[in-house]
Design a binder for these strands. Sequence first.
DNA 1: GGTAAGATCAGC
DNA 2: CTGATCTTACCT
Length: 211
Amino acid sequence: MSNQLLRKHLLHTPEVAAASVLGSELVIPEEGTRVLVTEVEAYGGPADSPWPDPAAHCWPGVTARNAAMFGEAGHLYVYRSYGIHLCANVTCGDCGVGGGILIRSVAVLDGEDVVRARRGARGADMPSHQLGRGPGNVGQAIGVTLEDYALDLFSEGSRIQLRSSVVKPAEAIHSGPRVGVRRASERPWRLWLDHPSVSAYRRHKNASGEY
DNA sequence: GGTAAGATCAGC
DNA sequence: CTGATCTTACCT
C-alpha cells in the first residue's frame, strides 16, 4: 500500500481508515526512530455525522480540545488521558467531519535505545514488545507532547510522520470491541495484528451497548 | 462555580 | 484493586 492510498482510506469509514493505519509506521526522522502500528481503535463523530459515535471525543461537537479531529485527515490529535498520559490519534474523515484512529500499541522497529531512554528506569529492563503496549505507553514511546497537536503526519517537515508499510495480509487483522469504553461497547472498532505488543482487552465496568 | 467520570498505567 | 492526577462536559 502506498502513502497515497493510505491518505485516501482515511477519508472513508472509520473502520477502513483504522485498517489502513494498522500496519503502517510512525517515523521520527530527527531521532532515527521508527515503530510499527500493531493495534488501533476507530472513533467516529457527533450524532449528526456520517459515523455517530457516543464513545468518541468528537461526540459533543467541536471543542478546543478535539478541534484537530474535525480538521484535515492525516493530522495528529493528541490528548491527555486520565490527567496523566498523552495519547495519539490519526485524524480521519473530511474536513468538518469528526473522526480519529487511536494508536493503542506499537512495535519498535528502529531506535529502540532512544525509546528505552525515554521510558526511564523502567524502560531499561522491559521486554521490547512492552515498550509501546497500550495507548499511554505509545505516547511515551514516541515521546509525543501537546506541542505536536494537529501536526501534519504526511508532511516531510513534520517531527512525526506516518508512512504506509509493507504488505499486510487481510487474514492477519483481528477485530473486537474497544477497550474501556462505556457507550457503544459492542461495536467492533478495535483492530489489531497478531503481535506480542498488542494490549489485553478490558471491558468497561459499566459497559452498555446502546446506540 | 462545582463536580463526576474518563479512549490509562503501575504498584500493591 | 487502588491511587495518581487533570480535563471536559454538564449540571446548578
